[in-house]
C-alpha cells in the first residue's frame, strides 16, 4: 500500500460533502432525543421521503418553461423544490409524532422505540409498493461544471450542496440559540415540566421538533439524490445508522455535537476510502464510535454541566 498525499484535497472535498449530509440527518436524531429521550428509528425514512418529495416536485415544476430557461430560473426552481420537499417531509414527521409516538408518551420507554421501527418499516414498504422496488434516477437539471481547486475536482453540484448545507446548519443554530421559540425548545429539552410552568406549550414544541428534524433530514435526502444520481426505497438505512453514530459521537442531545460528529464521520470515511479502500470506511467509522464511547461516553460535546438535584 502506497500513501499518495496528492489525493488529500479531493478527500477533504468529498468529506465535507458527505459530512454535511450526515450532520443534517444527525440533527434530527439529536433534536428528538433532546426533547423526548427517544431514538427516532423512523428518521432514516425521513431522509428517503425527502428525496422522493424532491423528485416529485422537480418533475412537476421543471415542466414550467420559465424555470429551465435561465440561470435565475434554475436557482428559483431548486429553491422552491427544496422548500416544498422540506415542508412535506416536516409534515410527515409531525404526522408520525402525532399518531405513532404521542399516544405512547406515558408508556414504558420501549414502546415508542418499537413504534418507531414500525413507522420505519411502514414508510419503506409504502415507497416500495406504491412507487418502485428499484432505484429511480434523480436528474440534475442544470448544467454541471467542474472546477479544479487546490488539486481537487469540485463540481457546481458539490458547491450547491455544501453551501446549502452550511446555510441550513447556521440557520438552525441561530434559530435555536436566538429566537424565543428556539429558547422554548431548549428549555423543554432541559426540563420539560419547568418549561410548561413558564407557559411553553409542550405539545407544540414537540410537534415543531418533529417538523424541523425531518425537514433537515429530507433536505439531506435530496442532496443525496442529486449527488449520487438515484434514489431507492431503502436508501435511508445506511446513512441513518451513520448519522445516528455521528450524533452519538458528538454527544446525543447536543446540536453542535451532531454537526461536529457528522463532519468528523464524513472526513474519516473519505480519508479511509482514499488511503485504505472504500470497504474499510464503515469499519473505521464504527471503530471511532466505539473509541469515543469508551473514552468519552457522553460524546465529544456531551453535557459538561452536571444537573443538581
Amino acid at each position: 500500500m502506497s500513501i499518495d498525499l496528492s489525493t488529500v484535497p479531493q478527500q477533504i472535498v468529498n468529506g465535507v460533502t458527505l459530512g454535511g449530509m450526515y450532520a443534517l440527518i444527525a440533527l434530527g436524531y439529536t433534536l428528538v432525543y433532546g426533547i423526548l429521550l427517544m431514538i427516532n428509528f423512523a428518521h432514516s425514512e425521513m431522509f428517503m421521503a425527502g428525496a422522493y418529495f424532491g423528485l416529485l416536485f422537480l418533475n412537476i415544476l421543471s415542466k414550467v418553461a420559465f424555470f429551465t430557461s435561465s440561470t435565475i430560473g434554475f436557482i428559483l426552481l431548486y429553491v422552491i423544490v427544496f422548500l416544498l420537499a422540506m415542508t412535506c417531509t416536516g409534515i410527515l414527521g409531525m404526522l408520525t409524532e402525532r399518531f405513532a409516538y404521542r399516544p405512547l408518551r406515558h408508556a414504558p420507554r420501549l414502546a415508542p422505540l418499537i413504534s418507531a421501527i414500525g413507522v420505519s418499516l411502514f414508510l419503506q414498504n409504502a415507497a416500495l409498493l406504491w412507487i418502485s422496488s428499484r432505484s429511480i434516477p434523480f436528474p440534475v437539471l442544470f448544467p454541471v461544471k467542474n472546477y479544479r481547486i487546490a488539486g481537487a475536482n469540485v463540481s457546481t453540484l458539490q458547491i450547491l450542496i455544501v453551501v446549502s448545507t452550511i446555510l441550513l446548519l447556521i440557520g438552525l443554530d441561530t434559530f435555536i440559540s436566538k429566537t424565543k421559540i428556539g429558547k422554548a425548545m431548549r428549555a423543554t429539552s432541559q426540563d420539560r415540566d419547568a418549561a410548561g410552568l413558564m407557559g411553553v406549550n409542550i405539545n407544540s414544541v414537540i410537534a415543531l421538533t418533529f417538523f424541523i428534524g425531518p425537514a433537515l433530514g429530507g433536505a439531506a435526502g435530496m442532496f443525496s439524490g442529486m449527488y449520487y444520481g438515484n434514489i431507492k426505497y431503502n436508501m435511508g438505512f445506511i446513512p441513518g445508522i451513520k448519522s445516528f453514530t455521528a450524533a452519538v459521537i458528538g454527544g446525543i442531545g447536543n446540536l453542535r455535537g451532531a454537526m461536529l460528529g457528522g463532519f468528523i464521520l464524513g472526513f474519516i470515511e473519505a480519508i479511509a476510502a482514499g488511503f485504505l479502500s472504500s470497504g474499510y470506511k464503515d469499519v473505521i467509522a464504527f471503530l471511532i464510535l466505539i473509541l469515543v464511547l469508551i473514552f468519552r461516553p457522553g460524546g465529544l460535546l456531551g453535557e459538561s454541566v452536571v444537573e443538581k438535584v
Binding site: 410552568l197 413558564m198 407557559g199 444537573e307
Partner: peptide, 24 residues
C-alpha cells in the same frame, strides 16, 4: 387546564426542587 394555559392566567408555581434550566 394544561399547565401553560394556567400560567397564562397568572397562576405561577415555583416548583419544589427549583427546576432551573441547567444549561441556560
Amino acid at each position: 387546564l394544561e399547565a401553560h394555559v394556567v400560567t397564562g392566567k397568572g397562576i405561577i408555581q415555583v416548583p419544589e426542587g427549583r427546576h432551573i434550566f441547567p444549561r441556560m
